[in-house]
């Protein structure tokens, strides 16, 4: 089975473009399954079901969604293998720009949208910089000049990735994205594989449920801003 991780900021169009790509693959007889990670709730399950895609949702609740993802990704793979998919897509919650749920040797896709502005590519960490395919969405509603500057800025921070424009509404580019997804290598298992980048450290009193503000209550991995 081929495995793909799809990440991107909230509302960048991850689900919309994934659905368009899957629809194109389904027409060619490819059996695709999806695992959707989210934090509090997700409506995307029904969106996928409507499309006739087998989908499993994982809600991280009060845990960091990306850490939750890593702890569960092997089980996702086993579920996909059991269901007999040709291709399994894991869609992340997309909450933190620093995180990258991308795995070495697994096709990594990042979805970002033109509407987020031309400075955004700079602000997104390994999720964008270390992805193999960058999908740019919402191109139909910004000017041609902004589109060109935006792809240039993506290219600046990810010079080797494949950039593709997909319209999540009309599906323009969805077929082509599907072709790229099919290039993913086979992933028989994940045990011992490495994440492409370490996830942000988070082990302070607030991770453990502290709510009070003040230096007396800060313990563990605490970092202070420099105001000098």
């Amino acid at each position: 089975m081929k495995l793909i991780t799809i990440a991107g900021p909230p509302s960048s169009g991850k689900t919309a473009v994934t659905i368009k790509a899957i629809a194109a693959l389904q027409r060619e007889g490819v059996h695709v399954g999806v695992v959707k990670f989210d934090s509090l709730s997700t409506q995307d399950q029904s969106v996928y079901e409507k499309q006739g895609v087998a989908v499993m949702s994982g809600l991280s609740g009060n845990l960091c969604p990306d850490h939750f993802f890593v702890s569960n990704v092997s089980d996702c793979l086993s579920w996909g293998a059991e269901k007999g998919f040709d291709l399994l897509v894991i869609e992340s919650a997309g909450l933190c720009n620093r995180c990258a749920p991308h795995i070495q040797g697994v096709l990594a896709v990042c979805v970002i949208d033109n509407l987020s502005g031309v400075d955004t590519p700079k602000k997104i960490g390994p999720m964008l910089k270390m992805s193999d395919v960058v999908v740019i969405t919402k191109g139909d509603i910004v000017s041609q000049a902004e589109r060109e500057v935006f792809s240039y800025r993506v290219r600046q921070v990810n010079a080797n990735g494949t950039i593709i424009n997909v319209n999540g509404l009309t599906g323009q580019g969805g077929h082509e994205l599907g072709k790229l997804l099919l290039n993913a290598p086979e992933t028989p298992d994940l045990d011992g594989r490495l994440l492409r980048f370490s996830m942000p450290a988070a082990l302070c009193s607030y991770c453990l449920g502290q709510r009070k503000i003040g230096s007396d209550f800060q313990m563990g991995n605490v970092k202070k801003m420099d105001f000098k």
Partner: peptide
């Protein structure tokens, strides 16, 4: 990106900046 064939000037375009 330097060989992109089509530039689109669509009707519902906006300036975001």
């Amino acid at each position: 990106i330097e060989h992109k064939l089509v530039a689109q000037l669509s009707q519902n375009m906006n300036f975001v900046m």
